[in-house]
């Protein structure tokens, strides 16, 4: 009887090991397939989207809530308090903040850089805050020095911006009907996943967003 139990136990163990090995190989094959065929950033975001859908949680910030929180952030001085901030303009009609900053210490090639220009606005498509960036460089003439806009192709390397951000040159209208301007745009499609989308974060959504997006660039 004991021998039978021991033998069954051994069999069970070997079956379990076999199953685990098979499952492990299947998972490995799936991971290899995903790695070869899909963009890993997209897979991660897709995983978060599905997870979010299962949990049925809020994903974005409404325009009115964004306006309220932007107004509070400006009045409390949390944006102005950043040590790199040189000048700030809050437009309460278009609900945007335009900000001139110094060059953050982590930026490379800083000799040529003059200042950065940020704009905080709202994406009606993604229903998320939107961060825009422009770089100004110094240009020396025989008689005077002037600053001009610069659109380098390797902006992320120059400002040492985290690779998690998707940054691209985009044509932006400051309002739905205004003229277009060229800005580097931090693409907002995965914003809520980057900053956390729990309902209890809603009251501090913009504050969290500022920390992750704006202040992480200004280090």
């Amino acid at each position: 009887m004991i021998c039978f139990i021991v033998s069954m136990h051994n069999h069970l163990l070997s079956y379990m090991v076999l199953f685990i090995t098979i499952y492990f190989h299947i998972y490995l094959l799936i991971l290899i397939y995903i790695y070869q065929n899909y963009n890993l950033e997209n897979v991660y975001v897709l995983f978060l989207i599905l997870q979010n859908r299962i949990r049925n949680k809020r994903k974005m910030i409404s325009h009115s809530e964004y306006c309220r929180q932007l107004n509070s952030a400006y009045n409390e001085g949390s944006v102005q308090a950043n040590p790199y901030c040189q000048q700030i303009v809050y437009d309460s009609s278009s609900h945007t903040i335009l900000m001139k900053t110094g060059i953050p210490s982590k930026a490379s090639n800083s000799m040529r850089l003059d200042h950065l220009e940020f704009k905080i606005t709202y994406s009606h498509v993604y229903q998320e805050p939107l961060l825009l960036l422009r770089i100004w460089i110094r240009e020396h003439n025989d008689e005077f020095t002037m600053s001009k806009l610069w659109f380098p192709k390797d902006v992320k390397q120059i400002l040492n911006i985290d690779s998690a951000f998707q940054l691209g040159l985009d044509s932006i209208s400051s309002d739905m009907r205004q003229h277009q301007e060229a800005w580097y745009s931090f693409h907002p499609c995965d914003t809520s996943y980057m900053i956390g989308d729990k309902p209890e974060y809603l009251d501090k959504y913009l504050e969290r967003w500022l920390s992750v997006f704006l202040f992480s660039v200004l280090l």
């Binding site: 659109f151 040159l169 060229a182």
Partner: peptide, 11 residues
């Protein structure tokens, strides 16, 4: 040396 305002520079 500068793209006109609104035109996306091709970099």
């Amino acid at each position: 040396p500068q793209a006109p305002s609104g035109v996306l520079p091709i970099v």
